[in-house]
C-alpha cells in the first residue's frame, strides 16, 4: 500500500517544528519514530498533507534524571530505555514496558513520547504513564505547559494537544526506595498490540502497608484507563491476597473493551483483572513481600 500524497518538512529545531505546526495546523502531523503513523498512512487511514519530521532535532533526544524525575525527550527511542542502567535500576515498571513494548525492531525506531501522543488504547506507554503518574510537557506558539497523563490522554487517538502544539517530553517521577511496580501484558505474539495490559506502581510505608498505588489498564477501553477504585482499595491496605483480588475485580469492572480479532469483550475484561493481579504480585515481590500469588 502507498500513502496518499503528502509534503515533507524536516525541522532542525523545536522552534522550526512549532512554527511549521502553526502554519499547517490540523493538516500536519509530527513524524517521530513513525511506527504507528507510517502504517496508518500506508493504509490511508491517516492522510496528513504535511509531515513535520523531528528526527533531526538532536535536542529532543535525551534520557536523564533531573529534579527527581526521569525525563524522556520526544526523539528518544524505546530501545534507549531498554539498555539504560538508570531505567533498569530505578524504574522497574518502566523497565518492564521497555522490553515488552512492540518488538525489538520497532523499538529501534519507536519513541515513548510518540506512543503517548498516538493515544492508541492498546499502546503500552499510555498505561505506564498513568500508573507512573507521568507528566507531559507540550509546546505551542504561546510557550510550554505541562499536563498530567490523565489530562493528556483524552480518547482513542486523541490527546489534549492543540493543533499547533507538539509534545516535547514525558516525565516520570522517580520511585522512592519503598516503591516498585510492574507491567504485564497479554499479546497474541511478540510485536502485536496488547489484548489487555496492566501497569501498577506501589509505595509501602514503614509499617508495610500500601501508602500509594497507581493502577492502569490498557486495550480495554477507549483509552488507557486508570483504575481509581483499585488504587483506593490498595491505599492504606496491608498487602494480602484479598486486597489483590479486590483490586483485580475493580479492574474487571473498570474495563470496557470491544470485541475484535484479539478477543471478545468478555475475555479482555477478565484478562484485565488477571493482569492487574499478576502485576501487583510482581510489584510486591520486588518490594520484598512474597507469598501473594
Amino acid at each position: 500500500m502507498f500513502p496518499a500524497r503528502f509534503d515533507y518538512l524536516r525541522a532542525s529545531s523545536t522552534d522550526e517544528a512549532v512554527a511549521a505546526l502553526a502554519q499547517h495546523g490540523g493538516e500536519a502531523r509530527i513524524l517521530a519514530g513513525g511506527q504507528s503513523l507510517i502504517p496508518a498512512m500506508r493504509f490511508r487511514l491517516a492522510r496528513p498533507s504535511v509531515l513535520i519530521d523531528i528526527n533531526a532535532i538532536d535536542d529532543l533526544r535525551y534520557l536523564r534524571e533531573t529534579g527527581g524525575s526521569l525525563l524522556i525527550g520526544a526523539g528518544t527511542r524505546d530501545a534507549a530505555l531498554e539498555t539504560s542502567e538508570l531505567v533498569t535500576s530505578g524504574y522497574r515498571m518502566i523497565a518492564d514496558v521497555s522490553v515488552l513494548v512492540a518488538d525489538p525492531v520497532v523499538r529501534q525506531s519507536g519513541t515513548v513520547v510518540g506512543s503517548i501522543c498516538h493515544s492508541d488504547p492498546a499502546g503500552d506507554w499510555g498505561v505506564a504513564a498513568l500508573a507512573g503518574r507521568a507528566q507531559i510537557v507540550v509546546r505551542g506558539p504561546a510557550g510550554t505547559r505541562t499536563l498530567s497523563a490523565d489530562d493528556f490522554l483524552v480518547d482513542s487517538f486523541t490527546t489534549a494537544l492543540a493543533e499547533n502544539e507538539m509534545a516535547l517530553e514525558v516525565q516520570f517521577p522517580r520511585p522512592s526506595e519503598h516503591t516498585s511496580g510492574a507491567f504485564a501484558k497479554l499479546e497474541r505474539k511478540v510485536g502485536d498490540f496488547a489484548t489487555a495490559s496492566a501497569a501498577v506502581q506501589l509505595t509501602l510505608d514503614t509499617s508495610g502497608a500500601i501508602a500509594e498505588a497507581g493502577v492502569a489498564i490498557g486495550a480495554v477501553g477507549a483509552k488507557a484507563l486508570r483504575v481509581s477504585e483499585a488504587e483506593q482499595l490498595l491505599r492504606g491496605a496491608k498487602p494480602s491476597k484479598d486486597v489483590i483480588r479486590a483490586a483485580a475485580d475493580a479492574a474487571r469492572k473498570e474495563a470496557d473493551p470491544g470485541s475484535d480479532t484479539r478477543g471478545s469483550a468478555e475475555f479482555k475484561k477478565e484478562m484485565a483483572g488477571v493482569l492487574v493481579a499478576r502485576a501487583l504480585v510482581s510489584a510486591l515481590e520486588r518490594l520484598g513481600v512474597g507469598g501473594m500469588a
Binding site: 493504509f43 525489538p104 505474539k189 511478540v190 480479532t261
Partner: peptide, 12 residues
Amino acid sequence: NFTDYLLPTSLE
C-alpha cells in the same frame, strides 16, 4: 494484513 494474520517471530 499481518496485524491480523499473524506470522510468528523468533521470539515466540
